[in-house]
Simulated assay, not measured.
Amino acid sequence: MPLRVRESCMRHARRRVVRRVTRLAAVGGLLLGATMVTHAVAGEPGAPAAVPFSTAEETTPGPGAVVVAELGTSRTAGSWIAGDGATVVAVTDEEAAAEVRRAGAEPKLVRHSMDDLKTATKKLSSATRVPGTAWAMDYRSNQVVVRGDSTVSADDWSGLTEVADGIGDFVRMERSGGVFTTRVNGAQPILSTAGRCSAGFNVTDGKRDFVLTAGHCGPEGSVWFADDRARQEVGTTVAGSFPGDDYSLIRYAGGRAGEGAGVVAVGDGKGVRITGVADPTVGQRVFRSGSTSGLRDGEVTALNATVNYPEGTVSGLIESNVCAEPGDSGGPMFSEGVALGVTSGGSGDCRTGGTTY
């Protein structure tokens, strides 16, 4: 059965992970008839009134998230999972380091707090917008990493570098191969005149069921089908946001998603049951499912990412090294049965690798 959700009339809060529908950056599909969907869980109050939110319990946060919340953003700078599986927390003083040890995690002393990192990203966001650029907080290096794809001119890159230099030496500039794009074209299973995308989660308000997918897949009013001859209607997009955010809701034409939608299909007739939602952690191993490239895995490399697509800017994203290709948009990301997000876009492909948000 669909997870029950509550409606929220509060303004959509930016920079949320799975609590916020936008940052559901990729959680794969169950094949219902010809439509790939997953049963869902969606977020906390703060979205437009048409967006439903789950009342299902979130998974218990790990020691890193707990101690970071207790110490605050002026004394910490994020947490991550190390190669040996240990939880590491970046702290700015020895007293905070002792608190981290008592919580069962490993401290790492750093120069810059989360407040410093957030200030840096705000200054970058206030600079002249340059399509083809992106930035994210790299907790492990205690830096904000700014990337520019192959479309960014030398003059624009030089201008953005000046902004970064003015912020401080903890802003790192990197040129990237490929082009930062949303991932719409050439995929199934949901198709409309607006393009082709991967369906993500099913969500419900208790009366009707919806497919949660990427907002750039199509505007409100887009009608989606499970076949390229427009014979099997899935539903109509009734709410969404892009750019700024990147999510949309497709209301099922029949009102309901169907039974068994809580399982993510991973190929060969196999699936993974989604049992909860959580915020991702840097270093966490994750899986992403998409209708073009199928099931892929990798790790979360950064959080709080901002991407300047040609169509507009999207912020509050998860950055990962899991590859994606056109048509994977809206498909799901998960880890050990826990939903983390839906795919927005990225650079590269599954032959050469790349960055996905």
Rank of each mutant, 00 (worst) to 15 (best):
residue 112 H to W: 13
residue 64 G to F: 13
residue 1 M to G: 11
residue 3 L to D: 06
residue 350 C to R: 13
residue 130 V to C: 12
residue 316 G to C: 03
residue 6 R to L: 09
residue 262 G to H: 09
residue 21 V to N: 04
residue 74 S to N: 14
residue 40 A to M: 13
residue 343 T to W: 00
residue 26 A to R: 15
residue 5 V to L: 03
residue 222 S to Y: 12
residue 202 N to P: 14
residue 172 R to N: 15
residue 198 S to C: 02
residue 102 R to F: 10
residue 293 S to W: 15
residue 35 T to H: 15
residue 294 G to W: 00
residue 162 E to N: 11
residue 232 Q to Y: 13
residue 317 L to K: 00
residue 227 D to Q: 05
residue 289 S to Q: 04
residue 168 G to T: 14
residue 201 F to I: 06
residue 326 P to D: 10
residue 310 P to I: 09
residue 89 V to T: 00
residue 310 P to N: 11
residue 231 R to A: 11
residue 213 T to R: 02
residue 241 S to K: 05
residue 340 L to V: 12
residue 111 R to E: 07
residue 339 A to K: 06
residue 262 G to C: 05
residue 126 S to L: 12
residue 230 A to M: 03
residue 157 W to G: 10
residue 351 R to M: 12
residue 172 R to W: 12
residue 206 G to T: 05
residue 8 S to F: 09
residue 39 H to K: 09
residue 281 T to V: 03
residue 119 T to N: 03
residue 190 I to D: 12
residue 194 A to P: 14
residue 175 R to N: 15
residue 344 S to Y: 08
residue 262 G to A: 07
residue 312 G to I: 03
residue 133 T to C: 06
residue 274 I to W: 07
residue 37 V to Q: 06
residue 104 G to R: 07
residue 287 F to G: 03
residue 156 D to A: 15
residue 141 S to L: 14
residue 247 Y to F: 15
residue 33 G to N: 06
residue 214 A to W: 04
residue 66 V to W: 00
residue 84 D to R: 03
residue 161 T to D: 07
residue 149 D to P: 10
residue 298 G to H: 11
residue 199 A to N: 08
residue 305 A to I: 07
